[in-house]
């Protein structure tokens, strides 16, 4: 039943909203306006650079933190609190529950990012009093950030389906940090020899390659994003998230509820 996925997704979103997750927007707005006012007093040339850099980095970090903190509890908390009993005894399949949870969290992040994006554009307008064509590149960066969120949501959900929230948080954060250096890791692996090389290469390609998603710096310098990278990142993110989600479903499908 496809409709139950939508209902579960909406309920997940509603929970996030009622848990005051969107309050992070206030912190974001304060941070951004503080920065915009501050750099406006320092230098005219770099202020736009700083606003884009800082703004987008904040969008990404705030989102990652939310994705992990909500994601790690999505399944384990429902098992712990036994709220799942009265859901799974209804005509809801377990995979539908997982997919619904994922979509709900992803939706929460998209909404959150949308409001943050408004903030970034407002700050841009504040420092330069107009929009130029190159500002459209910010949308590209935001798109990549959302793709990144999809991967992190799916990973947090995967960990949540078999381990405690604390462990899941540790796993997810580690993967996020390691994944941000995935390209360096691949470089190191290529320099190794023998079995180490195989293992290191395997690990380097297994962790999510977040470095490919970070175009913030180049966008701040108004460098366009190659069409190939867009395609590549889209396919990669969807594939990675789908795989992690399938893993979560496989684990959850055969799990005894406490």
């Amino acid at each position: 039943m496809k409709t139950s996925i939508a209902h579960i997704a909406y309920n997940t979103f509603r929970e996030a909203v009622r848990d005051r997750v969107l309050y992070n927007l206030i912190a974001f707005a304060l941070l951004l306006s503080g920065a915009a006012i501050l750099v406006g007093q320092i230098s005219i040339e770099i202020e736009k650079l700083v606003v884009i850099n800082l703004g987008l980095t904040a969008v990404s970090l705030f989102g990652v933190v939310i994705a992990i903190f909500i994601g790690i509890g999505l399944v384990s908390k429902e098992i712990e609190k036994r709220t799942l009993y009265t859901v799974l005894s209804r005509p809801v399949r377990r995979w539908e529950f997982i997919v619904g949870k994922f979509l709900g969290l992803a939706g929460t992040l998209v909404v959150n990012t949308f409001f943050m994006a408004i903030g970034v554009f407002a700050a841009l307008f504040y420092v330069s009093h107009k929009f130029v064509h190159a500002d459209g590149l910010v949308f590209m960066a935001l798109y990549f950030i959302i793709l990144e969120f999809l991967i992190i949501c799916s990973l947090a959900l995967l960990f949540s389906s078999f381990s405690s929230p604390l462990l899941s948080a540790v796993f997810a954060f580690s993967l996020f940090v390691i994944g941000s250096f995935a390209e360096d890791l691949r470089g190191f692996a290529a320099m190794a020899h023998g079995i180490t090389r195989w293992l290191a290469t395997g690990a380097a390609y297994l962790v999510p390659n977040f470095s490919a998603f970070n175009v913030i710096t180049s966008i701040a310098h108004e460098q366009p994003v190659a069409g190939q990278l867009i395609l590549q990142n889209t396919v990669y993110a969807l594939f990675y998230a789908a795989t992690a989600l399938s893993g979560a479903v496989l684990i959850f499908e055969y799990r005894d509820l406490k």
Binding site: M1, T3, S4, H7, I8, N11, R14, E15, R18, D19, K81, R82, T83, Y85, T86, V87, S89, R90, P91, V92
Partner: peptide
């Protein structure tokens, strides 16, 4: 229909919202 032992529900919902949600899930 199933009533679990010491039931616990989504505590951010009201009774009406919870039943609405469960009604949707049960079709």
């Amino acid at each position: 229909g199933f009533l679990p032992e010491q039931p616990y529900f989504y505590d951010y919902l009201t009774a009406h919202e919870l039943l609405e949600y469960y009604g949707q899930l049960s079709g």
